[in-house]
Simulated scan of single mutants.
Amino acid sequence: MSDISTAFASIQKVALKNIDLSDKKYQISVPKAFSELCKSIEMLGLMHPPLVQKITSCNFSYRVVSGFQRIRACQHLKIECIPCHVISADISAFDCAKRAIADNNCQRPLNILEQSRSLALIKKYLPESASFQSVAKDLGLPASQKAINRISPLCDMLANIQEGIENEYISLPIAHSLSKLPSQDAKTFANLFAQLRPGLNYQREIFTYSYEISKRDQITVTEILESQAVQQILSSDGDRKYKINTIRNHLKCLRFPQYSNMEKKVHQQINNLKLPFQTKLSPPAYFEGNTYLLQMTFKNAAELQQSLADVLSKTNAIEDILNIGK
């Protein structure tokens, strides 16, 4: 009989005091609140026994392969002994890793961080004769090289970044960018995004402006984001959207002071035109080029004629706006 077939030959009663929960060699998931799991165990018992491996240790007899949350929940409920699938000490680390991944994957779809930890387990214990991508595919993990390159590094990133990924306030592209920064700067970004929870585009803008300012001025990102100006915005009474926009605009002004001054001047001059609300004059994006956009909405020919007449009566003032920055 093979190792695989004998591994689950019997379920044994195991005392919780003999299980080493500090040994996280095969842990894939992150500890979470388990109140619902506790209720389920109290009501129905432990329906899916954890998987443990015999070990030779002075203090413990077993390490956890899969089922950390279930064991913690039983510990919380002060249960002394639980049924466990027990595998022998001679089962290889690679086989244990595969069982840990398969067991977790069977219970729920693995999130992207769990996928990263699973890929790391495979890579760590993969025999020379085995194909990494084939094993990943067989275990239901992303197996294309592009996906592996994108997902694998996540489990080695700072805890702050991983928390942001897991709670969906740090996007994957930004997480990769943060991982290349000094740890303190990465933590500062992660803390800011945790507080504001901006969308991907705002994350990109805030990251890019801050990073480029730090390189230009030879200061750290932390100095920029912990400046008095930014902290005043964060502590203001504005809502989350207001704070995101205000910080983004503040950083944009720092990054492009000449552009920002020109933008303010142009918009002030446009406001001074007092165009009808149906008419909108917009400068070229980032003032690249000389083409302005004039938009009009109207219900009939009379409204159009009136709007055109109003614009044409202000051609001198509009000409002054067009000459700003030339």
Score class of each variant (00 low, 15 high):
14 V>M: 02
18 N>P: 04
19 I>K: 07
27 Q>N: 06
29 S>L: 04
32 K>W: 00
33 A>S: 13
34 F>R: 14
35 S>C: 00
37 L>K: 09
41 I>F: 08
44 L>T: 05
44 L>N: 10
44 L>G: 00
46 L>P: 05
47 M>L: 15
48 H>K: 13
51 L>I: 10
53 Q>R: 11
53 Q>I: 12
57 S>E: 06
62 Y>P: 06
67 G>F: 01
70 R>T: 11
79 I>P: 04
80 E>F: 04
84 C>P: 02
90 D>S: 05
92 S>Y: 01
98 K>F: 06
98 K>A: 01
99 R>W: 15
102 A>I: 12
102 A>N: 13
117 R>E: 04
120 A>W: 02
122 I>H: 08
126 L>F: 09
139 L>P: 01
139 L>M: 04
143 A>M: 01
148 I>N: 03
154 L>F: 08
155 C>V: 07
168 E>I: 12
173 P>H: 08
178 L>M: 04
179 S>A: 12
180 K>H: 02
182 P>S: 08
184 Q>C: 03
185 D>N: 06
196 L>Y: 01
201 N>E: 15
202 Y>K: 14
204 R>Y: 13
207 F>R: 06
210 S>I: 09
212 E>G: 05
218 Q>C: 06
223 E>Q: 14
225 L>G: 06
232 Q>E: 13
233 I>N: 02
235 S>K: 14
237 D>A: 08
240 R>N: 11
243 K>Y: 06
244 I>Y: 02
248 R>I: 01
252 K>N: 15
252 K>F: 12
257 P>I: 06
266 V>Q: 00
273 L>E: 11
279 T>S: 08
280 K>A: 10
288 E>R: 11
291 T>P: 07
293 L>C: 04
296 M>V: 03
303 E>S: 12
304 L>A: 12
309 A>H: 10
310 D>C: 03
313 S>R: 12
317 A>T: 05
318 I>P: 01
324 I>M: 02
325 G>H: 12
326 K>F: 09
